[in-house]
Amino acid sequence: MILVIGARASGKRAYVESLGYAPGQIADGVLDDKPVLYNLQTITMADPEGAPALLECLKTKEVVVCDEVGSGVIPLEKARRLGREATGRLCCQLAKEAAKVVRLVAGIPTVIKG
């Protein structure tokens, strides 16, 4: 599995398409049988407590794409705080499992693992 992370609009989707995936192979914020899951953070921010249980399913994906959501001021709202933490922790687990971790900054991919 390849983990692709980076800020919102940092070029993650274009990078995944450059790997040869067609738009029809990319699921957007839903867990289905497509090989690529994009916008993982929409799932984890909506249900932080359920995030750890996603790991097993995500390990079977070819590519998992997630926004980095942990930067900036710690939010006052508890749900957003927990969502950021849960997303970050799940990404730490995914990074351990991943053969490769790629971080996008301004459209430029940097391989930070693998």
Partner: peptide, 8 residues
């Protein structure tokens, strides 16, 4: 340094 939940 790093954001929330990044493994610091």
């Amino acid at each position: 340094t790093g954001g929330s939940g990044c493994g610091k």
